[in-house]
């Protein structure tokens, strides 16, 4: 958990135009640089370190290179994003972009918040047409994802409402449709928890969205009235306040931050202190390559408390999350999906 705390201190306030000074030793940097790199937080960490004595450290040089790569990749993906929007519009489909560029555009510099795919939501009626259009793109250089549990399954909001509140943002000569600030923050929060808060950068996204919200930001719309989603969103924002020092005093999450479940912060820091692991491959694939790896494969699939809470549609509460983890682990739907090769938590 010590390394998770170092990651936390490096990322505290890192999204701000003027980030606070950072206190990190060379030894700590050596330990956490691989964690930052594997979780996508290398570039934003470099931004915090570049004006410190650690800027010349070899590990910092690696972070700097990542920042360079991300900057170029961001430019390339913006080109791809314009192309995808133009293509879908020519097919009569108007998508909404979530996460990815929709968040990275809010950061003070390009390349600080990397993303590798394009996450789009389309109307259920347009889904097949959108899929068909995208499949016809024979030179795709990145993955366009049309399936999002945080929108389709875990949230109760209707597409029509999401769409009617969405806004257009300029990207070069194209306009990109993104959710309104309230809907987007809500999506980011649910996504963070669904994925077990495994990437610290996702919490930076939330902190940035909260601190950068406009005056008229409607918290009632963002939180909604339905539970457990309202609890999830408030808890995720509270977590950004507690772990990354996001300014949440004037938000409904301030009270939630005072009584976060005792297991929550340690669970997140534990995640951050370990190298980021993406969804494991189908178990049969793993076992074919290494038949003796059954125990390891089973262990890899143990859900963390946050993803178990979301998977079981439970509030993030004070009680032990262990029963939820067991329930999630043994749910027939999950077992079937894991054998086929899905993501944990879904």
């Amino acid at each position: 958990m010590a390394d998770g705390s170092t990651v936390r201190s490096i990322l505290t306030g890192a999204w701000r135009p003027e980030p606070p000074s950072v206190d990190c030793s060379a030894d700590e940097l050596c330990r956490v640089a691989p964690l930052l790199a594997s979780s996508g937080a290398a570039a934003i960490a470099w931004r915090r370190l570049r004006d410190t004595a650690l800027a010349g450290h070899p590990e910092a040089a690696g972070l700097r290179d990542t920042h360079r790569r991300n900057t170029l990749q961001a430019a390339r993906l913006e080109h791809e994003l314009r192309r995808v929007f133009t293509l879908l519009r020519s097919s009569g489909v108007e998508p909404i972009l979530i996460k990815g560029w929709g968040v990275s555009r809010l950061y003070p510099e390009r390349g600080l918040r990397p993303y590798g795919d394009i996450d789009l939501c389309v109307s259920p009626a347009d889904y097949a047409r959108a899929r068909e259009s995208l499949n016809a793109l024979d030179d795709r250089s990145c993955w366009v994802d049309l399936d999002h549990d945080e929108v389709d399954r875990l949230d109760a909001r209707r597409w029509e409402d999401l769409y009617s509140r969405s806004i257009l943002e300029s990207l070069g000569d194209t306009e990109v449709r993104v959710p309104c600030a309230e809907d987007h923050l809500r999506l980011l929060c649910i996504h963070l928890l669904k994925e077990g808060a495994r990437r610290p950068l996702w919490l930076c996204d939330i902190a940035l969205a909260v601190e950068g919200r406009a005056d008229g930001f409607d918290w009632r719309l963002c939180l909604g009235e339905a539970d457990p989603q309202a609890n999830w969103v408030a808890t995720a924002v509270a977590l950004a306040g507690r772990l990354l020092d996001a300014k949440i005093d004037d938000t409904p999450a301030a009270r939630v931050a005072e009584r976060l479940p005792a297991w929550l912060v340690p669970a997140v820091l534990r995640q951050w202190g370990e190298p980021f692991r993406p969804a494991p491959p189908p178990m049969r694939w793993q076992l074919r390559r290494r038949p003796s790896g059954l125990l390891r494969a089973l262990r890899e699939r143990w859900p963390n408390p946050l993803e178990a809470s979301v998977a079981t549609r439970s509030r993030l509460a004070g009680r032990s999350p262990l029963p939820l983890q067991v329930k999630t682990y043994l749910s027939p739907k999950r077992v079937r999906k894991l054998l086929r090769g899905g993501t944990p938590g879904s």
Binding site: A43, T66, R69, P114, Y115, G116, D117
Partner: peptide
């Protein structure tokens, strides 16, 4: 750009 730093591309063995 490599998968590890990008955030969304998946490394070897991932689903």
């Amino acid at each position: 750009p490599s998968a590890a730093q990008l955030g969304s591309l998946r490394p070897l063995g991932a689903a």
